[in-house]
């Protein structure tokens, strides 16, 4: 296959504005990943291309980017999922809503600041039992979906509410909070709900579903956000 790869590029040391660079790639296989194409460009055409990647297998979440207008992991999407026929164009740009450091690399710090705001770790002041805090399978299942999150930011940076208001805590942080709020062993759920009930918490969500569509782990993000909203509604004032 012949693929024209359009990449939104920006080098803050040289460029005033970002621009589209085009690379014509020959003999692309339908089962090649977009990450393979990007690495081919970086390795054989232009070594200055900046991108993040780590595991390359959809686990670490470092290569989330906007591909043909939708947030995806470059290591999980195959060329045949984007282009039918012998030739086509694939467009790659950095995730929206976060400052671009260089080319496809964005500054993740605002995203992690929101993540830390929900206190995403286990809290229980009771003395630990001799072996472990036991839990029934059904109780574990209650928050199972949230445990799949890899913090790639694909959901938060696909959210129009986040684009409009960068102080909105965003879907990923709410999913992380959900994981602990609905864990029966954790005792700080009410405090987390109070945090998420604030002005920049769950109420900025408009149920647009972009986050659910963008999640490479197929987490029903919008549903989890709705569950948190319901839980806040049930809280005593």
């Amino acid at each position: 296959m012949d693929i024209r790869l359009r990449i939104r590029r920006f080098n803050p040391e040289v460029d005033q504005e970002s621009y589209w660079a085009e690379y014509d790639l020959k003999d692309v296989q339908p089962v090649d990943r977009v990450l393979d194409l990007l690495e081919h460009v970086k390795g054989h055409i232009d070594g200055t291309l900046g991108l993040r990647r780590s595991c390359g297998h959809g686990i670490c979440g470092s290569d989330a980017m906007r591909i043909n207008g939708q947030n995806m992991l470059a290591c999980k999407v195959l060329v045949r999922n984007l282009v039918q026929g012998d030739k086509g164009t694939i467009q790659v740009e950095p995730m929206l809503g976060l400052p671009v450091i260089k080319d496809l690399i964005v500054d993740m710090e605002p995203f992690f600041e929101h993540y830390r705001a929900v206190v995403p770790y286990f809290i229980n002041d009771d003395p630990a039992p001799e072996r472990e805090r036991l839990q029934r399978p059904a109780e574990r299942e209650r928050f199972d979906e949230g445990t799949k999150c890899i913090l790639c930011a694909a959901c938060t940076t696909s959210c129009p509410s986040f684009w409009a208001d960068r102080t909105y805590i965003g879907p990923a942080a709410i999913v992380q909070a959900h994981r602990f709020i609905f864990d029966g062993r954790d005792t700080a759920g009410d405090s987390r709900l109070a945090i998420l009930a604030s002005e920049k918490g769950v109420w900025r969500c408009r149920t647009i579903f972009n986050c659910t569509m963008a999640c490479p782990r197929e987490i029903p993000v919008t549903q989890l956000i709705a569950e948190v909203k319901k839980a806040i509604g049930k809280q005593k004032p």
Partner: peptide, 22 residues
């Protein structure tokens, strides 16, 4: 460990919860 608080989010009114229900 005590209950978590966050400096990022501090407004804890109930109005938005009622508005969402409405």
């Amino acid at each position: 460990m005590t209950a978590p608080t966050s400096s990022l989010l501090h407004d804890r009114g109930r109005f938005e919860a009622y508005a969402w229900r409405l």
